[in-house]
Design a protein around this nucleic acid. Structure first.
Lengths: 125, 125
DNA sequence: TAGTATATACAACCATTGGTTGTAAAATGT
DNA sequence: ACATTTTACAACCAATGGTTGTATATACTA
């Protein structure tokens, strides 16, 4: 399940741990797990829960975002504009708003509805 | 294991999901799990791994940090879902989002663009 | 150099939970 | 009022989060 991902974040943890000159044992004890388990995190053998990452970030005295860096795919960041609207959706809205003719607007909505219907049915068949 | 924490983040996810007007099923399918499993996340029954959170943030088109901030639920939902959209515009968005075919989407945008153009010129002439 | 302590690695094992399907109740749309 | 969507909840199972035990490096100090 997305090994690459896990590995990356584990490596990041290790990096910061070493930077703090902390042993696996020290860190593990601080967050209340065995150092062997921490090993699994660092090696990407086990998934890291958000909760654990939280603990680790506290133990290492760094913000969680630091540990996540390199995880956030570029495209997403770009795609996001404001309030959950994608660029595409924003464009859609902008264009729609430019049309001041009520009938045309309604027609467009009907058209969209039709298309959605068709796609949906085709998906089922 | 730190139930409170999990619950919070699950609730945050739910808020954002609703803000995007996405059903549990829709979101779950997007990230490749059953909607029942997503329920467990939202309810704080199961831990959320960083990996999953990553997927969710992508599906909801928001940066991971948003989900990590222990934010006031009320605000978020309103802030986003309302966002000054008229009923008509909300419908537009809903329909547009139902279309999962990228080409069709692009086609629609082009069409809209065309219409906007024409109306504009006619308005001038 | 040996000897002790520290740090990391790896295997075997078990309890928990991450994940599934099935069924039922709300909610929503027409 | 009826059909469809959406959400909730229970039962179940495989996977993994977590443990201890042992082995191998890597220091430190006498």
């Amino acid at each position: 399940m997305a090994k690459g991902f896990k590995k990356n974040i584990g490596e990041t943890i290790k990096k910061y741990r070493l930077a703090t000159r902390m042993s696996q044992m020290a860190l593990a004890e601080k967050i209340g797990i065995s150092y062997q388990q921490l090993q699994k995190y660092e090696k990407g053998i086990n998934n890291i829960s958000v909760y654990r990452l939280q603990q680790i970030s506290e133990a290492l005295r760094i913000p969680i975002s630091r540990l996540l860096e390199g995880q956030e795919p570029e495209k997403v960041a770009e795609e996001i504009s404001e309030y959950g609207l994608s660029k595409e959706e924003k464009t859609l809205l902008d264009l729609f708003r430019k049309i001041d003719n009520k009938d045309i607007k309604r027609g467009l909505l009907l058209e969209l509805k039709g298309i959605a219907e068709i796609l949906k049915k085709r998906g089922i068949d």
